[in-house]
């Protein structure tokens, strides 16, 4: 459904941020994009939706396709209207609008006709807490509520695919669980494909079918949920699991770095 092929992104014509990223998200699946801070995860998402153009960035090489359409030639709003909606990092609500107004704005990306009332009911079905808040100013809601509004807003557009940028950011473990449960439910009921960018690898891999690991603007590792969960490097660096108390030889660290890769 979404296919990135050897994408290079440069900012200001000098800073190379993505150095050839290729990934593929099939229809009706969840893919996780993992990696540390500064690995280029958000830049990859912004490249897909064209937001990098507003930040003086450009895709200098490679192709990005969504359902066979070349996204590089489309503007951000056209991309959103074609059914690919990004939930930006840090929630990015319209802070002075009410919760319901925020959701209404989300319906702009809708392609088919459906009643606004039913759509709002659907959102309130997934996030019951938002119903009571519908007339509250969005900016004063709590972090978890804001994340719900942010996801709900994207969902109002009936997306074929959602790009979720760190939905767990700044939330308590319990809320993270809750949000991921809802994401999974949305995926199953709506059948929308999801590309999930996360630092919280264990949570992300719980719901993803396939995962990619990024580092320094490259994809260094990819595999199915099962493969990645069992991969020693991922366990150690992204899930924080290691054999405690044992002496560690740094020679064994990050085997994949020494393996030649052709991605």
């Amino acid at each position: 459904m979404l296919r990135l092929n050897n994408v290079e992104v440069m900012f200001n014509k000098v800073i190379l941020v993505l150095r050839g990223v290729s990934l593929h998200v099939p229809a009706h699946s969840i893919a996780a994009l993992l990696g540390a801070n500064g690995a280029g995860k958000t830049t990859a998402l912004n490249a897909i939706t064209g937001l990098i153009k507003t930040e003086l960035g450009e895709v200098t090489e490679g192709t990005i396709e969504f359902e066979g359409k070349n996204l590089l030639r489309m503007s951000t709003e056209e991309i959103a209207q074609s059914g690919l909606v990004q939930v930006m990092e840090g929630r990015r609500l319209f802070a002075h609008l009410t919760v319901e107004e925020n959701l209404r704005v989300g319906a702009r990306a809708k392609r088919e006709k459906s009643s606004m009332k039913e759509d709002l009911e659907m959102i309130y079905g997934y996030f019951p807490r938002l119903r009571d808040l519908s007339n509250a100013t969005a900016g004063y809601c709590s972090g978890g509520e804001q994340q719900m509004i942010s996801i709900g807003r994207a969902l109002m557009g009936h997306p074929k695919m959602m790009l979720l940028d760190e939905p767990s950011m700044g939330l308590s473990p319990l809320l993270v669980k809750e949000i991921f449960r809802i994401i999974k439910a949305i995926h199953e009921e709506k059948g929308a494909a999801i590309l999930l960018v996360e630092q919280n690898a264990p949570q992300a891999l719980d719901i993803a079918d396939y995962g990619y690991v990024m580092e320094n603007g490259r994809i260094v590792l990819d595999g199915t949920q099962k493969d990645l969960k069992e991969n020693e490097d991922v366990k150690e660096f992204y899930m924080g699991l290691s054999e405690v108390g044992k002496k560690k030889s740094y020679r064994e660290v990050k085997h994949y770095r020494r393996r030649k890769r052709w991605l």
Partner: peptide, 21 residues
Amino acid sequence: GLDMRAVAEDHQAGMCMGIST
């Protein structure tokens, strides 16, 4: 009117929602 208020708050988020800035 709603589109205009939304874009006023956050251009990028507005674009992501499919509003033509």
